[in-house]
């Protein structure tokens, strides 16, 4: 009796160093890590949800001013950034695939490609912020907004309402950019560890979960792009 119980307890200390002692199998450990990541993303949905909710309320109230303010933002850099992020999501998929197939150099390459695309996104974003700075469209003491309402040439947009649009613009894209900066840092760490050979087809949970994070940040931008850049463009 005693011997068999000892055997069970000893059997619980695994041969695989990547398998933590409180998990029975690698599959269970992976599922637990994945579920934890999805729960984190669920609270991220609520976190960004508050910003989207504020946007929705003010867009409902100040629709004309919001579309006048939205028209001062150039579509092209935003569209390019959307494409850049979609490409970076593909490189993340290819990185996870390389990890699953145990291809270390491919994994490092796709992680670095993701970092390059992430930095390209941030560079274009910085250029857009610079333009807003030059146009005095940054909320604060030097804010100035002199534009007509899109459908009424004689009526000026209310600058305070436009300022609310730009406050939300900077809060939402800024929070998104902060997530991108964290993501780039995370992928830099992963690329370093991958280069050292830490990740194999047996253990690549950090790659997979960081990939989930990156895709989530991409999804936030998929919604931000039409909401911020494309209000009432047909006028």
């Amino acid at each position: 009796m005693d011997n068999s119980q000892v055997a069970v307890i000893e059997g619980h200390t695994h041969d695989n160093p990547a398998l933590l002692h409180h998990f029975a199998t690698e599959g269970q450990q992976k599922n637990a890590a994945s579920l934890g990541m999805w729960l984190f993303l669920a609270q991220e949905v609520m976190f960004f949800g508050g910003l989207f909710c504020a946007y929705l309320v003010y867009r409902h109230w100040y629709y004309g001013d919001f579309s006048a303010a939205s028209e001062t933002i150039a579509i092209l850099p935003g569209a390019i950034n959307t494409a850049v992020l979609i490409c970076s999501s593909l490189t993340v998929v290819l990185a996870v695939r390389a990890a699953q197939l145990n291809k270390r150099l491919q994994l490092v390459f796709w992680l670095l490609a993701t970092i390059v695309l992430g930095l390209a996104f941030l560079g274009i974003k910085a250029f857009e912020y610079y333009e807003k700075f030059v146009e005095h469209h940054i909320p604060g003491v030097n804010f100035s907004f002199i534009e007509h309402l899109p459908n009424q040439p004689g009526v000026m947009a209310n600058p305070h309402h436009a300022e609310m649009f730009f406050s939300l613009y900077f809060a939402m894209t800024g929070m998104h950019a902060l997530h991108m900066i964290i993501g780039v840092g995370l992928f830099g760490f992963l690329a370093f560890e991958a280069w050292r050979g830490k990740y194999t087809s047996e253990y690549y949970t950090p790659i997979e979960n960081s990939g989930l994070y990156w895709h989530f940040v991409d999804i936030i931008w998929i919604y931000l792009f039409p909401l911020i850049y494309l209000i009432d463009r047909h006028r």
């Binding site: 579920l35 999805w38 669920a42 949905v45 609520m46 949800g49 989207f52 909710c53 309320v57 409902h60």
Partner: peptide, 18 residues
């Protein structure tokens, strides 16, 4: 289940606020 509940509570936040 996590995804559906996240979307459900997001929908609750947006619809009740509006």
């Amino acid at each position: 289940l996590v995804i559906v509940s996240a979307l459900f509570f997001l929908g609750l936040l947006l619809s009740l606020s509006m």
